[in-house]
């Protein structure tokens, strides 16, 4: 827990917490929606970073846990009147459980094979849910507004969802920091660098990978539960949207693979950029092209991402930017 005394922990708390408090202080609905989205992306990107950046396993289909958590929680709220907080927790736990069970066989695969398998798993679950009647099949499920009554009406429910996502984002990034600074995290980094050599050094890669995959599925599960609670409707397409998974990977790369701050910076910058491109008259129709072009530049020339680049350039900053 010595990580909690590190200067960076306070930087993290102040920045994420500060931005998170902005909508609460101003009470603005617009700001709240913007920050909600960024926080949700921070959760997705940070979770992917834990398995990909620390451990070297590219979980392309990580969005499956977002969708699963969302569906499980939505189902419980709609059909069994479970309270939102309890339903979200169950959603997160189910995501983790499924990650644990899938992880045992799938994490034996390496490199591209693992990446492909995670895409496959997402598609299996998506097409299964599309045909699964208890979850509403292809049309999904939706709340009638009475569901929100127990949370003081729809308007209050939106704020409630916001508070929840802020708390989960903080928990997720703090978990990411704790892992990175722990002995367990050092073992993960060793696995990322050379799995066979790490075994010779006394690390049990199979166990470490399954544990970290289970952790990395928990937060997207919670985020999915919160997002679809706020949305009031859940459908297979948006819940298991592979593109969103890939966007989160891009955020990790943009911010800095394997750093704690990277996914946060990446999510914020990516979302700002996307919002700018879509609303800008010159770029709006070309926004996909511009996004692709920027991604290519980053991949080819700024391999370490923004945070990695800053850390390389200014060693003095390293204590404040993990």
């Amino acid at each position: 827990m010595s990580a909690l005394r590190a200067p960076f922990f306070w930087v993290l708390l102040v920045v994420v917490g500060g931005v998170g408090l902005l909508p609460i202080l101003t009470g603005s609905d617009g700001t709240r929606e913007d920050v909600f989205l960024v926080l949700m992306l921070v959760i997705l990107a940070s979770s992917i970073n834990i398995i990909m950046g620390y451990t070297g396993y590219v979980s392309f289909g990580h969005i499956v846990f977002f969708g699963l958590g969302g569906y499980v929680a939505f189902y419980l709220m709609l059909n069994h009147q479970v309270h939102f907080v309890a339903a979200a927790l169950v959603g997160g736990i189910v995501s983790s459980l499924i990650a644990f069970l899938l992880g045992i066989p799938v994490l034996r695969l390496r490199g591209a094979y693992f990446a492909l398998a995670t895409i496959g798993i997402n598609e299996v679950v998506r097409s299964f849910v599309t045909n699964f009647d208890p979850f509403g099949g292809a049309t999904g499920m939706f709340f009638n507004y009475q569901v929100y009554d127990s949370y003081g009406g729809a308007k209050n429910a939106l704020w409630f969802a916001y508070d929840a996502i802020l708390i989960v984002a903080l928990l997720c990034t703090i978990t990411s920091l704790l892992i990175k600074k722990s002995k367990f995290g050092l073992g993960l980094l060793a696995i990322r660098e050379d799995q066979d050599a790490s075994q010779v050094l006394g690390i049990d890669p199979s166990r470490s990978k399954v544990v970290v995959y289970t952790i990395s599925a928990f937060f997207p599960g919670l985020a999915g539960a919160i997002f679809f609670f706020k949305n009031g409707i859940i459908e297979p397409g948006p819940a298991f949207d592979l593109l969103r998974s890939i966007e989160a990977l891009v955020m990790v790369m943009l911010g800095g693979y394997g750093t704690v701050a990277g996914p946060i910076v990446g999510a914020a910058v990516y979302e700002q950029l996307r919002a700018f491109l879509i609303t800008n008259p010159t770029f709006s129709s070309l926004h996909l092209f511009v996004a692709g072009f920027l991604l290519l530049l980053i991949v080819l020339f700024v391999t370490n991402g923004l945070v990695g680049w800053l850390r390389q350039r200014t060693p003095q900053l390293r204590r404040y930017l993990e």
Partner: peptide, 16 residues
């Protein structure tokens, strides 16, 4: 990961 993202960026550009 790097080549996956590099080719994905081409995907985005073509679709864009």
């Amino acid at each position: 990961l790097t080549t996956l993202l590099a080719t994905f960026s081409v995907n985005l550009m073509i679709v864009g």
